[in-house]
């Protein structure tokens, strides 16, 4: 980008922050901000000023929340994950031997931690983890293991959850997907199912994830690349922690 163009865009930063540009200029500045930290910081400052100008007290209209809540009820498609019953999962773990799972998972832990920040798992829910940093201390679970299995039991994925909330997967059984697809990891909680991150198209290598003690089980679905907020697909494999 030439200096002249940078200066031209700089001149638009104030009006951009006030939504006072046309669509072409909005796109131009928006794209520029992705690459120019200085301009991005300047815009943030102006947006904060604009927010202060627009701040006010007062109440929202009666009944508006009810309408919004009604939309929430309708909007999220149900995530359909078949999680194995606890007894079946426990039986399978016993048959396979949970110590092998734990040892294998711990074995890959060091390698995984090295590349943790670049992990595909982290990419999807970096937003959540970043936001969680503002939370009070999250309760930590004891180490537990889970054996995830497909409905026909031809595929298995072993998982271990350490006491610091970090979990690891051994997903070598999962077939490689196309580049347009990804595996997505979900945590099962009492309140519902939450995304724990993307595993990529070929999760044969050990993968790390973050989960709190509210996660009682795991499931993996096959999704389009980039993942989904809520899945309508059945789980490829699923299981519960012991």
């Amino acid at each position: 980008m030439s200096d002249a163009r940078h200066e031209d865009i700089e001149a638009l930063l104030g009006v951009y922050a006030l939504h006072s540009v046309d669509e072409a200029e909005r796109r131009l500045v928006h794209d520029h901000l992705d690459d120019c930290l200085r301009c991005a910081q300047e815009v943030l400052g102006y947006q904060e000023v604009a927010a202060l100008l627009g701040q006010s007290g007062g109440d929202a209209p009666t009944g508006l929340w009810e309408r919004i809540a009604g939309e929430l009820e309708e909007a999220p498609p149900p995530l359909r994950l078949g999680v194995m019953p606890m007894a079946a999962a426990a039986e399978r773990r016993e048959r396979r031997g949970s110590s092998r799972v734990a040892l294998a998972a711990m074995g890959i832990a060091a390698a995984v931690v090295i590349g943790f920040m670049g992990s595909v798992v982290v990419q999807q829910d970096a937003r959540i983890q970043g936001l969680e940093s503002a939370r009070p201390d999250v309760p930590i679970t004891a180490t537990s293991v889970a054996a995830l299995s497909s409905a026909d039991e031809t595929m298995t994925v072993d998982a271990v959850l350490l006491s610091n909330g970090t979990g690891y997967l051994l997903a070598e059984d999962l077939p490689v997907l196309t580049q347009q697809e990804t595996y997505q990891l979900w945590g099962v909680t009492d309140a519902g199912v939450i995304s724990l991150g993307l595993l990529g198209a070929d999760p044969a290598q050990g993968m790390a994830f973050q989960a709190g003690d509210h996660v009682t089980g795991l499931a993996i679905t096959q999704e389009k690349a980039g993942g989904v907020a809520k899945s309508e697909n059945s789980a490829v494999v699923s299981g519960t922690f012991d």
């Binding site: 929340w65 809540a69 149900p78 994950l81 519902g192 809520k230 899945s231």
Partner: peptide, 16 residues
């Protein structure tokens, strides 16, 4: 196989 909903334990349509 059980089916799990994706929403949290929501407030439904009650006032926040």
């Amino acid at each position: 196989m059980s089916e799990l909903g994706s929403s949290g334990h929501g407030v439904g349509s009650e006032s926040p």
